[in-house]
């Protein structure tokens, strides 16, 4: 069973759907064999956290190419790496960094996404703001993540999110999604969804694939597909195949 899904996902990684954790590695006898090493640059001013993140990602078999302490250094490092033809797959950046300790991380992320469309950017913060999410997602939801720092506690899920973003997927924090859902002016339409459909909508907005949603809710892929098409029907959205386009459609809908 493992083998089949792995194969399926490994092929899908480079096409459209990102397979999530099962696509990344196979556990054999307690030892992990890394299938797809992701190259990461970490920007975080707290040395403690930077080292923690590095340890966590390295432990999962990924490459931490560089760790920097502020936004300027981040942009410069990425430019240098790009010049050498070694652009990393994903940047994990803190929102608040020196010198002003405000939203340097978000601004640097937006700049990087413009300059390097292939680069995944995962922004971490002590608190999430729907406004920052909107700024990050402006234009495209390809390779964007925005998570609470607390999420690093769930090591697996966090590493999954990093990999997902690295491979062009989306990872939005459930809190951002909750804010979007709560703030949306289309409450009457949302009220028309069944509780299960709302749950699926939330997970979809977080950037998860159908199979990941199925695993989370412990239902079959078919059931999720049915929910998804129902949701799209009720919201009056055109069904779309690509996950990240789907996320964007949902977010645009909620934000409008």
């Amino acid at each position: 069973m493992l083998d089949l899904r792995t194969l399926e996902c490994r092929t899908s990684v480079r096409t459209t759907v990102v397979g999530g954790r099962i696509g990344i590695r196979i556990g054999i006898g307690g030892r992990e064999i890394v299938e797809d090493r992701v190259r990461v640059v970490i920007a975080e001013d707290s040395v403690l956290l930077r080292e923690g993140l590095t340890r966590l990602l390295t432990d999962r078999g990924h490459d931490v190419v560089a760790g920097v302490g502020d936004a300027e250094a981040l942009v410069k490092t990425i430019a240098d790496l790009d010049a050498q033809g070694e652009l990393p797959d994903v940047v994990v950046a803190d929102v608040r960094m020196p010198p002003t300790h405000t939203d340097e991380g978000v601004r640097a992320a937006v700049r990087l996404r413009k300059a390097h469309p292939g680069l995944g950017v995962l922004v971490l913060s002590q608190y999430v703001e729907e406004r920052y999410a909107t700024e990050l997602l402006a234009g495209s939801s390809r390779g964007v993540g925005y998570l609470l720092k607390d999420r690093v506690a769930e090591v697996r899920e966090f590493v999954d999110a990093v990999v997902r973003v690295a491979e062009g997927g989306t990872a939005l924090d459930p809190e951002v999604v909750a804010q979007l859902l709560g703030r949306s002016r289309k409450q009457d339409v949302l009220a028309g969804l069944t509780p299960r459909e709302r749950e699926v909508l939330g997970l979809m907005a977080e950037g998860r694939t159908n199979s990941a949603i199925a695993r989370q809710l412990v239902v079959s892929d078919g059931a999720v597909e049915k929910h998804v098409s129902n949701i799209f029907l009720k919201l009056g959205l055109a069904p779309s195949d690509g996950d990240h386009r789907r996320v964007l459609a949902v977010l645009t809908y909620l934000n409008s």
Partner: peptide, 27 residues
């Protein structure tokens, strides 16, 4: 600022360490 840079950052690291430990518990 003090909370953000101090206790909060430390607790995040702590959560991360414990998360890692939890994963390692059996292996």
């Amino acid at each position: 600022r003090d909370l953000h840079d101090g206790a909060q950052a430390r607790l995040v690291t702590l959560a991360m360490d414990l998360g890692l430990a939890k994963e390692k518990l059996h292996e």
